[in-house]
Nucleic acid binder design. Structure first.
Lengths: 341, 341
DNA sequence: CCCCTCACGGTAAGCGCTTTCAGTTCGCCG
DNA sequence: CGGCGAACTGAAAGCGCTTACCGTGAGGGG
């Protein structure tokens, strides 16, 4: 990028007849006094010349930037898009720019991106993708985040189990547990679970919540009642198929994410299996599109956008003390679930 | 951000026993020769010390940054999320970071953001939200973009009518025209159009395409056959309602965007109006979720992700000559449309 | 065998801004 | 009316990196 004769602060200073130092102070320190009218004069010059401070020079001089990095699995996924919306909306309020990177659930890539964002000296890094159960990877990640934080960066994770930075802790287990209670209340006794990759912590927690919920009612999942698929529409289709093709298919399908539920609904529709007539289906997350599914999707609403906002708010706080924001999901009963029979 | 004793290039140079300049060259200019083994030694030192170049210093020195700005209406909207996915995927390939800002269709905000991105000295600005028909605003925007480009920035607009920068020109009119042809082929003769804000150029073009398509078959839209609503689910509901509540409701509803079609479908479902039995509904854009609608949404597929990729690719090209990538939509017939009766 | 050429590597000058430090200028008290 | 501070302003030193611009040593041609 050929930086072509842009107005520099020096030009403003010259134009206003003050020194570079004074111009700088007038422009960026509102508490600075200054001779009567001087501030106005400098401001006027700046406006007249169309001065725009060079953020890189400023970042270099102050060792502070106005960028924050947001690491998600995939923008195209409504779950993350919605969350990102929240992050962006509070960031913009503070004139911060949000750089989004997508890992597509590849831990190596995630680490690589955190490194890159750290080298970029962004002011904060928000990890919104759930972490994985991989000791080595987590250790590396924590080390990276730790050194980033020590160098002044702010870290926020929307996942539990991180040893560094603030945390937005989604009660995945609790949400699922409540959902199961609701399903049991409807009269369900046979469940099938379309879960995601076992390595994902969030998946594990949600699964755990389901088990706990069932246990609360003296029930339990059989060995074949859980299938692990990709967290995607395709995964949902495959999962539904494998569960429903059994000799004794479940009457209630619990999925680990709304998008997976969409896939399940799609497959069921294809097969002319009635929802919720033949089988109930529930999702998790509460993406806006759930209401448009047919039938509308019962889910655990996490208030994704609010989560994004919280994360960004935490990112603005000093690293110490560490904050943990607990987020509970609330069961939203819609048309995709009903009592069996 | 307290920049705390991070390793600087100078440290690497010292450690490797070379000068700052040499270290810099070895690290960032692969074509530079260098005594045998010297490069390796510098690299090794860098690795050992955990050196990370400071991007702000680099940006300051080279007047180039590794950030690009993406201006969209709303990340939460699948249309833009999908497009963003494309932009991000090619950007990452070049180690570029994408900062996303949302205008929520507010032109003033759009201008404000472009200004901000320009001041941030991002390497490129991609305007993905359609532009508006507002002379003053467009003049201001073009001026801003022009000066940004003159100062070395790259500009790409995913909309026609911009006088500066590269363009990804979506053939909105043509796409709609083809869609109308398909509908006519199905036997439709009475249409209702749920359009967006008249000020949006894309809306206008799509509307134009509809008119042209009808004209091709000797038909035309009546005064009341078009309603203008927000480009949103709610807008779609309101639009469908106002069109279908007429004495002689249309048998085919054309909407200006998929999300609007979703709203329409939702309202129709609520009213127990059968789709496509009583009325056909079509969208525009081709967001992935269309396939999950019930019935699946007939639409004009724009290949949103590909558009994002193209935009980012153009952003990498020199400003001159100006490139224009033409994008045609293709009609995808799905369950939401059928012949009348 | 010497000089010229050239590839290397070092020195130093910025990139545009912030901020310390020191020099001024007033205002005000004694 | 002189002197002491407070309040400003300006000069200058970086922030970390790139990149002319040179001096230097080695290699090759005359």
């Amino acid at each position: 990028m050929v930086e072509q004769s842009l107005v520099r602060l020096q030009d403003v200073a010259d134009h206003a007849g003050v020194s570079l130092a004074t111009a700088s102070r007038m422009l960026s320190d509102p508490n600075y006094g200054g001779r009567a009218g001087l501030r106005e004069r400098v401001m006027a010059s700046a406006t007249e010349l169309g001065y725009r401070p060079n953020p890189y020079a400023r970042a270099l001089a102050t060792a502070t930037s106005m960028n924050v990095g947001l690491v998600i699995h995939d923008v195209r996924d409504a779950y993350f898009a919605t969350l990102s919306g929240g992050v962006i909306s509070v960031a913009e309020h503070d004139d911060l720019l949000v750089s989004i990177v997508c890992t597509y659930r590849n831990p190596g890539r995630e680490l690589e991106y955190v490194r890159r964002l750290a080298s970029q000296r962004v002011r904060a890094i928000i990890l919104a993708g759930s972490s994985v159960r991989d000791g080595a990877h987590n250790a590396a990640m924590d080390a990276e985040l730790g050194s980033y934080q020590r160098s002044g960066g702010s870290v926020v994770s929307v996942t539990r189990g991180r040893t560094v930075g603030h945390v937005v802790d989604i009660d995945n287990a609790g949400g699922m547990r409540k959902l199961v209670h609701s399903m049991v209340e409807l009269g369900h006794t046979s469940f099938g679970v379309v879960a995601g990759p076992q390595k994902l912590l969030a998946v594990r927690d949600r699964l755990q919540g389901i088990k706990q919920g069932l246990k609360d009612h003296g029930m339990a999942l059989g060995r074949d009642d859980v299938v692990h698929v990709d967290v995607s529409r395709e995964g949902g289709m495959a999962g539904a198929q494998s569960l429903m093709r059994r000799a004794d298919p479940p009457r209630c399908l619990l999925t680990v994410a709304d998008v997976v539920a969409f896939g399940a609904l799609s497959w069921l529709r294809e097969q002319d299996i009635a929802v919720p007539g033949d089988v109930s289906v529930a999702g998790f997350g509460g993406i806006p599109a759930g209401i448009d599914a047919v039938p509308p999707l019962t889910t655990v609403d996490l208030q994704l956008e609010r989560i994004g906002e919280s994360a960004m708010e935490l990112a603005l706080k000093p690293a110490s003390p560490r904050h943990v924001v607990e987020v509970e999901g609330s069961v939203v009963m819609r048309g995709s679930t009903a009592g069996p029979r």
